[in-house]
Write a protein that binds this DNA or RNA. Structure first.
Lengths: 140, 140
DNA sequence: AATCAATACTTGATTCACTCAAGTAATGAA
DNA sequence: TTCATTACTTGAGTGAATCAAGTATTGATT
């Protein structure tokens, strides 16, 4: 489990609750991944392959070095969850796609990671809209 | 930068905004730590030493193995930010405390990590209360 | 057509976080 | 006095992440 990101001195109740939410969310994500013997990073990459795409696109979206993606994808490939195919349009590039097993594992991960769904589900539709509006405003 | 924890398929707007918030929060935390040449884990441990305490207490609070804390504290000690003192009441145990430099770095970290403060600050006091109530309800 | 910088990705080296198993030393209860 | 427990450290191993350097291909320029 990664250590929580915070709290520094929380200066308001809202900040403290926000931190708690994030901590619980992050831990739930990691735990769901661990149920499937995946790391958070692996679950993250697997979840972004609904469509086949290049390594570079993944690195850019995830804001990390390309070599990091190379590594993570290599492990997922070793697990039989993704496949790297040559890109017919550009022989430098490779397209990554989930295998059928990868689809299944990804699906099971989505089922195992219930936290966000459950948390949101505790709110009425009206409350969900309020929360969405507040968070959007907070995000600026 | 750690890869983001999500989104799987986001099944509602609220879930998507929540994920975005968490992603931005986590990245801001890591970036603030990086400004001070700290890792997230180091900033986290440093931030939990407002009072001197034992290694075991830290490990329990942070939900990780004691040996993980040993390592992180050793690095912080190497940086001169914390000190390990013998516990006069129990010679097996050691008490960890921030040094004056550690206090200063921790203070600067709290200043550098503006995200949560800023985000909450975009809301009126009433809205902050609403958000707190909604998040508490969502947390169950 | 030939050249060459830019692009897409990989490889290798290094650091750190994290976990588990095993070890040491001190404590406290029988 | 014995011995399990506690508190922490050490060592080994994995994975994430970054950086620097390398390869192959592409595409623009001459």
């Amino acid at each position: 489990m990664a250590l929580p990101n915070g709290p520094v001195a929380t200066s308001s109740k809202a900040e403290a609750v926000l931190f708690e939410l994030i901590d619980v969310y992050d831990r739930a994500y990691e735990a769901a991944a661990a149920e499937l013997s995946l790391s958070s990073a692996q679950a993250c990459v697997l979840g972004r392959l609904d469509e086949r795409r290049g390594m570079g696109a993944l690195a850019e979206e995830l804001g990390c070095d390309a070599s990091n993606i190379t590594q993570i994808v290599a492990r997922l490939e070793g697990l039989g969850l993704v496949a790297r195919e040559p890109n017919p349009r550009d022989r430098r590039a490779r397209l990554v796609a989930r295998t059928p097993r990868g689809d299944e594992v990804n699906h099971r991960f989505a089922e195992a990671f219930t936290f966000a769904r459950t948390a949101i589900g505790r709110l009425s539709p009206d409350e969900q809209d309020q929360l969405t509006a507040l968070l959007r405003k907070a995000l600026g």
